[in-house]
Write a protein that binds this DNA or RNA. Structure first.
Length: 719
DNA sequence: GTGCGACGATTTTAG
DNA sequence: ATCGTCGCAC
């Protein structure tokens, strides 16, 4: 068989990885070095050359997007239907395992997945039921505590605690939360992994079965794995299976959410893999790569890697020092306008920032200039309130004893059932070991509620019964349509929210019906005996949906540096490059966290293909207060020859770049003594710019050094 | 039981 | 500044 097409377009290192003999591999894949191509071609190589059955391959990623892309590319390359392939996210694959072996891990066939919000509400419920002070144990924090320990593989009994107060209490909440989940057949995200690990660890037959099945396991973004994920990999690998691990220690930016970059070292220790470095970059100019290399070089304990390119040197990186955040936004949007004016597309431009709050000024300015844009982040489709409401009704139809769903919608839309009534139902359920639905039914029948509350609860139960009947024989889409139509969610949102907001919710609910209508049940779910409804509910939790999937217009892209990982853009702006913001204040004290910030900077820089701007502002509004800051240390880590500074006072447009007028002194000379109404007296140390843009740097005796716009500074000459 | 005003926190986030 | 949660008044 001719397999040259699998190798033709690969460089030496890529080819070496794709064609490696059996054994373990560690592919250190630098940014833009073609790692997805290597993974895809490796899978094809294994199937076509090593004659590995597609059924015995497992490929694991972190995001559905990455899994989908890999699946699609493998399918195209091999011209096969990639259905039998186990390509998926850690969570997706674990979900599949648990569905297949639900009974063995003590889960009902109907187990449900809790997303973060469901989990939060449940944790809060448990805390309240225990009458524990929410101030001392904030649900968010307890949720973090539970997830942290689960990610480390710990059950409540395995957590060391050193007191009988606070820590013991946290463990107790974890225990009770877990008990509740067990009783109700609920599984949170971390639990999907933990149960799977326990299944393989404690059940020798299952372990042997899967170890015999998956002779080749490929893992993407390995630097992002947490303790549990690495444990799973080890269990699946066993003694004989071959691991193909792809990662980049320099792109580890998720330590704060449990990722263990040390897993790369552990993998080296545990499996002694062959090391292959992919260092040739196909994305950025030489200038950008050199700058990024030099920045990341300030980190210690790297595996070491030097990105290079055969491409051209390209333009210098441009740095803009803005007076304030507004001016920074003006500058960025003006450069985007230049780009568009020269025939560039808006969607080629990305504005990257450290924290979401920074997006606002860019949005305002883009809106004003009438440039289309898209902000990443925020709630995804299945996380929106109205969608979660409708989904809760669907969950109740699927399983009337789903208490999480019951609690969410018993009074949504509002029908006069308040906290007192719900508490009464909850009590009744607890004393009789019933679900909330059962308890509510009994309470209504026994007249255990006030006339008014009883009537309201009865109407809720009637609605659910009505829906159940209507949906008994209906399709998934029919059920979704019935829910949207009969619950009157749309009308409810209309009464309590401004028209535009309510309209968006209405559109989303229609979209939900469309989504249900076009839902294709995955083959393996069908095989596992799941109903389409059960599949749909799981999938909604597991794939919350693209942020604004349909909007594929030609838009400027606004996102955090974290969300930018894995993407690339011809024109990139890194905004807010200031000490305290990036690196973030909370990361500055600890060396480990600072190193992670630097990797984030490296990730950001390596997103740029052609042109990279780095901007910072002297002052900006943070939490409603004006704050002043110095440029980020990362800016200074870029070697001078690679970077060109632009200051307010002369606008560089590509056509007119390099023309600088002499600074306008406005009658003030260097060394002059001046007084400012707020900052007091000081000495002029620098001047630049012209006319209304002229700025002056003054070293104030008390307030330190500041840049001021001459026209507004109102300086009084003294001495 | 519902609705509004005070209060406090506020980095990053996929599944 | 802004958002979400909590407490108190209708």
């Amino acid at each position: 068989m001719d397999v040259s097409h699998l190798l033709d377009e690969l460089n030496d290192a890529q080819r070496q990885a794709v064609t490696a003999e059996d054994g373990h591999l560690l592919v250190l894949a630098g940014a833009g070095s073609g790692k997805t191509r290597v993974l895809v071609h490796r899978i094809a190589w294994l199937i076509q050359v090593h004659h590995v059955s597609p059924m015995s391959l497992m490929a694991v990623t972190f995001t559905n997007k990455a899994a989908g892309e890999m699946r699609g590319r493998v399918g195209r390359l091999l011209d096969l239907r990639p259905e039998g392939l186990w390509i998926g996210t850690f969570h997706g694959i674990c979900h599949r395992l648990l569905r297949m072996h639900a009974a063995e891990v003590n889960l009902p066939d109907t187990f449900q997945i809790l997303d973060s919000e469901d989990q939060y509400r449940l944790v809060r419920r448990v805390i309240r039921d225990q009458q524990i002070d929410e101030g001392e144990h904030p649900p968010r924090q307890v949720q973090g505590f539970i997830n942290h320990h689960k990610d480390e593989g710990r059950r409540p009994g395995q957590i060391e605690h050193f007191d009988q107060g606070f820590q013991a209490r946290q463990v107790e909440i974890y225990q009770r939360y877990q008990d509740y989940c067990e009783r109700s057949g609920l599984v949170d995200f971390a639990e999907l992994l933990l149960r799977s690990v326990e299944l393989l660890r404690d059940n020798p037959e299952r372990r042997a079965h899967y170890q015999a099945r998956f002779g080749n396991i490929l893992i993407d973004e390995f630097q992002d794995t947490n303790t549990l994920q690495y444990a799973l990999v080890r269990l699946l690998a066993g003694e004989r299976n071959h691991l193909f691990v792809v990662g980049d220690d320099d792109q580890s930016i998720y330590g704060w959410r449990g990722a263990r970059v040390e897993n790369v070292a552990h993998y080296n220790r545990d499996f002694q893999p062959e090391l292959i470095r992919l260092e040739q970059n196909y994305r950025s100019t030489r200038t950008i790569l050199e700058a990024a290399n030099r920045v990341i070089d300030h980190n210690d304990d790297r595996m070491g890697k030097n990105l290079w390119t055969e491409g051209e040197q390209g333009e210098p990186i441009r740095r803009f020092a803005a007076f304030n955040a507004e001016e920074e936004a003006e500058f960025v949007i003006a450069r985007i306008q230049d780009w568009i004016a020269q025939g560039g597309r808006p969607s080629d431009c990305a504005v990257l920032y450290r924290s979401n709050a920074q997006s606002r000024l860019f949005e305002q300015t883009l809106l004003r200039e009438d440039i289309p844009y898209r902000v990443y982040g925020g709630l995804r489709f299945f996380e929106r309130a109205e969608i979660k409401d409708a989904m809760a009704y669907l969950r109740l139809l699927h399983n009337p004893h789903d208490d999480t769903a019951f609690e969410r919608v018993i009074n949504v839309p509002a029908r006069g059932i308040g906290e007192r009534t719900v508490a009464r139902i909850r009590d009744h359920a607890r004393t009789n070991g019933q679900s909330l639905a059962q308890a509510a039914t009994e309470q209504v029948a026994q007249g255990g509620l006030s006339a008014r509350a009883g009537h309201a609860v009865r109407s809720f139960l009637a609605l659910v019964a009505d829906l159940t009947e209507a949906c008994g024989s209906a399709s998934l889409a029919g059920a979704a349509r019935a829910v949207v139509e009969r619950t009157e969610l749309v009308a409810w949102y209309q009464t309590r929210e401004p028209a535009d907001r309510a309209e968006a919710r209405e559109e989303n609910l229609s979209e939900l019906v469309r989504a249900a209508d076009s839902f294709q049940q995955p083959f393996e779910d069908e095989q596992a005996g799941l109903s389409p409804m059960a599949s749909f509910l799981s999938q909604a939790a597991l794939e919350a949906g693209e942020h604004q999937a349909e909007r594929w217009e030609d838009c400027v892209q606004l996102m955090t540096l974290h969300s930018a990982k894995g993407l690339e853009f011809p024109l990139v702006f890194m905004a807010g490059m200031e000490e305290g913001l990036f690196p973030h204040q909370k990361s500055i004290e600890e060396p480990g966290r600072l190193a992670e910030e630097r990797r984030l900077c490296y990730v950001g820089m390596t997103r740029a293909m052609q042109r990279l701007y780095i901007t910072h502002a002297e002052s900006r509004q943070t939490y409603g207060q004006t704050s002043f800051s110095r440029p980020s240390r990362f800016v200074a880590e870029i070697p001078e020859p690679l970077i060109e500074s632009i200051r307010s006072g002369f606008r560089v447009t590509p056509a007119a770049s390099g023309r600088e007028a002499p600074p306008d002194t406005g009658g003030l000379a260097l060394g002059a003594s001046v007084r400012h109404s707020r900052f007091g007296s000081g000495t002029v140390v620098s001047l630049e710019g012209q006319g209304p843009n002229a700025r002056i740097q003054v070293n104030f005796e008390d307030a330190g050094s500041k840049w001021l716009v001459l026209a507004y500074a109102n300086l009084e000459r003294i001495g």
